[in-house]
Design a protein around this nucleic acid. Structure first.
Lengths: 348, 348
DNA sequence: TGACGTGATGTTAGCGCTATCATTATGTTA
DNA sequence: TAACATAATGATAGCGCTAACATCACGTCA
C-alpha cells in the first residue's frame, strides 16, 4: 500500500537482507552477540558497517518497553558541586550505549517529583537522583519504577534502592570541631538556601558546639536566598556588626566562605587571627585563595563514578555487595583557620 | 493472540474508549487542539485527567519520525559560563513539551562531531551547539538535519542556520584597550585551554596592543591545560618573574583573573597600582572580590534564552527576522584596573 | 438542485524494533 | 537407540502512536 516517506536511514531489515539472515538475528547479534554463532556475527557486523547502520532508539524502546536512558536529577546546574558529579556520570557512561537525560529540580522537591514522573514515562534504564528527601509520591514512583535507582550526594538510613554520598551532618560537625580545636570561641554559621543537606550540616555544626558548651543561636546567620560569593560577604558583615565578638565562621559552602574572606578583607578584619573561616566542599579555588581557605573536601567526582558503577553492576546481574556507599570527607586545614602559631605560644 | 505484558500504563486507546472517540481524535486533541471540536476536546481532556494518561514519547517519535528532544552540545559541564546558558535553556523549555538532551564535547571538535551523529539519530526537534568551529562533517550533518540549528556563544559570518552570541575578538580588544586607557604600558595576556574562542580573544587583545604600538609576544603566557584559579596564580607569577616590568594582565577568563589576584597578593604585588587585572565573562564573584575585579560582562543567560526563542519561533512558523543575534558585551571597570586616581594626578 | 468545497472525525496501515513462541540441528543420557 | 535437553535461528505479532487517506455532514453557489 501507500508507503511512508522514511528518512532513508537503513533499518535492521536492510542489514538482515544484506547479511542474508532474519532481522531478529541481527537484533540479537547487536544486543547479545554470544547468542549468535560466530559465522553469522561476522557477516552481520560487516553489513552493519557497510550500511553505516544506527539502531533507532525509539523503535527499540517501544518494542522492549525499555530505553537506553539514564535519568539524572540534580537540584542545580550552576552549582559546581553538581557539575563535578555530572561530569563523572557523563565520563563513566561514555563508553556505554546509555545516554543521560538530565533534569534540574531547582532545589524543589515538588519539581523533582514532577520530573521523576516525566522521566519515568520514558522508561529509563536507571535513575540517579540527588538527595534523600524525595516527596512520598516521588519515592513511591521510584520504588515501583522497576529499574536501578541511586540516590546521590548524601547517605541515610533508608535507601530507595542504592545510595552514594557522605554524611553532611558529620561534615558540619567536623568543621565546627576543627574551629573549636583551633581555639575559636565565638563561632558563627553562615548559610544560604538552607536545603536539606545544608540544614543537616547546620545540625552537625550545632551538635559540636553544644557538646563544647559553646552554641549560640544568635551566631547562626542563614537565608533562603541562593548562595553566592557576594552573599557571603554580606552575611559576614551583618553578623560581625551585630556581634563584634564573632571570631570564626563555618560557611555552608565555599562560595560563602570566599565571600566571607573578601568581606573580612574589606572590613579590615584579619584572617585567621581575628576571624577563622571554614567552607564546605573544597572547590579548587579554596587552596588558591590568599589566605588559602579551610574546607571540608568531598569526593563529588567519585560520587558520580560510583553511582554509575553500581548501576552497571546491577544491569550486568552482579549487584554491588553494599547498597550504601559512604565516601566520607576530609577536612583540609589551610591558612584561614590555622592558629597553631597562636596555640603554640600559650593559652588563648 | 498472546499478549505482551505492558506495564499497565494507560494508552491513547484507553483514553479514546473512555471518551467515546477514536484514538486518532485523542492524538489530535493533544497535539493540535483546534483541530477537534470543543465538545470532544472537553470529553478527551476529562478522560486524560481521569486516567492520568501520559503519552509515550518513544511511540510518538517512532510513528512521526520526530522526537520532542532538543539536542544541546556544550564543551564543558564545569565551566560556569556554560551552566548559565544551560540554565536559561532549561528554564525556557520548561513550559514546552520539549526535553533537553545534553552532550558534553569536552572542547573537542571531533567529540562534538561524534555526539552530533548520535543525537541526530534521535531525530531531534532542534539542535543547539556551542561555537562556530564545527568539523566539516559535523557541519554537513547539521545542514542536512532538517531541523532548526542554533550556534551559540559566538557570532560569525557564516551560520549553519541561526546564531546567538557575541564577538570574542571584540571582547578581547575592548579589554586590552581599557588597560591601555588606564595607563598600563606592559600588558600581558594569561590564557588557558586556548580553545577557538579564547584564541579569538587573544587576537583582539593583540590587535588593540599593536594599534597602540605596545604588543610584546613575550608577555603572552598561554597553556593548553584547562583553566583554574590555581593556574591563574601560577601563570601570573611565572610571567611576573620573567618580566618584572609587567604592569597589567588580561586574563582570558575570570578564574584565571581571580587566581592572578591571589597570586599577586601572595607575591606582595599591589593591585591595581603595580598590576592591573581584567578578566572575561564577569562571573558573580568578580564584583565581590577584594579588590573587585574588572571583567567583560557577557550575557550567558540571554544567549540560552534567545536560542530557545529562535527555535520556538521557527517551529511556530514565524522564523526570526535576523538569523544572527549579537548580544554584545559590557566592560565592567572595577578596582583591579582603576587607575583614575593616578591618571588624574599627572602623567605616568 | 446538484456539483463541490470545507471541517470534523474515523479507518487503516505502518514506524523499526523485540518478545514470544516455533522450528530445526546437535549433543546427551539411560 | 529412544527420549530428551540444548543451542541456533526464524516467523509472527505486537509495542503505542501518527501519516495518509476515507468518510460524512454541512453549507455554498451557479
Amino acid at each position: 500500500m501507500r508507503k511512508r516517506k522514511g528518512a532513508g536511514r537503513p533499518t535492521i531489515a536492510d542489514v538482515a537482507a544484506q547479511a542474508g539472515v532474519s532481522s531478529i538475528t541481527v537484533s540479537r547479534a547487536l544486543r547479545d552477540p554470544q547468542k549468535v554463532s560466530e559465522r553469522l556475527r561476522a557477516k552481520i557486523d560487516k553489513a552493519v558497517r557497510a550500511l553505516n547502520y544506527i539502531p533507532d532508539t525509539h523503535a527499540s524502546a517501544l518494542a522492549s518497553s525499555r530505553s537506553n536512558v539514564v535519568a539524572v536529577l540534580v537540584p542545580s546546574l550552576t552549582n559546581n558541586v553538581f557539575s563535578d558529579t555530572l561530569r563523572a556520570i557523563y565520563d563513566a557512561l561514555d563508553a556505554s550505549p546509555l545516554q543521560v537525560q538530565l533534569g534540574n529540580s531547582r532545589y524543589s522537591a515538588t519539581e523533582q517529583e514532577r520530573l521523576i514522573g516525566i522521566f519515568l514515562s520514558q522508561r529509563p534504564t536507571a535513575v540517579i537522583v540527588s538527595g534523600i528527601d524525595q516527596t512520598p509520591a516521588a519515592r513511591k514512583m521510584l520504588e515501583e519504577a522497576n529499574c536501578p535507582v541511586v540516590q546521590i550526594m548524601e547517605t541515610g538510613p533508608d535507601p530507595i534502592d542504592m545510595m552514594v554520598g557522605f554524611s553532611h551532618y558529620q561534615g558540619g560537625r567536623a568543621a565546627a570541631q576543627h574551629l573549636i580545636d583551633q581555639g575559636y570561641r565565638h563561632i558563627g554559621f553562615l548559610g544560604a538556601r538552607m536545603d536539606p543537606r545544608t540544614t543537616r550540616r547546620l545540625a552537625g555544626f550545632r551538635r559540636a558546639l553544644e557538646d563544647a558548651g559553646m552554641f549560640d543561636p544568635d551566631l547562626v546567620k542563614t537565608t533562603t536566598t541562593s548562595s553566592s560569593v557576594t552573599l557571603g560577604g554580606v552575611l559576614l558583615r551583618e553578623l560581625a556588626r551585630h556581634r563584634p565578638d564573632l571570631d570564626a565562621v563555618f560557611c555552608n559552602n565555599d562560595d560563602l566562605a570566599l565571600g566571607a574572606l573578601f568581606g573580612a578583607q574589606k572590613a579590615g578584619i584579619s584572617v585567621p587571627d581575628q576571624l577563622g573561616i571554614a567552607g564546605f566542599n573544597d572547590l579548587e579555588m579554596m587552596q588558591a585563595a590568599c589566605p588559602s581557605l579551610t574546607s571540608i573536601r568531598t569526593d563529588r567526582y567519585g560520587i558520580g563514578r560510583h553511582a554509575v558503577n553500581m548501576i552497571q553492576a546491577v544491569l550486568e546481574g552482579t549487584p554491588p555487595p553494599e547498597k550504601i556507599i559512604d565516601l566520607g570527607f576530609d577536612l583540609q586545614m589551610r591558612q584561614s583557620s590555622d592558629r597553631r602559631h597562636i596555640l603554640a605560644s600559650g593559652p588563648a
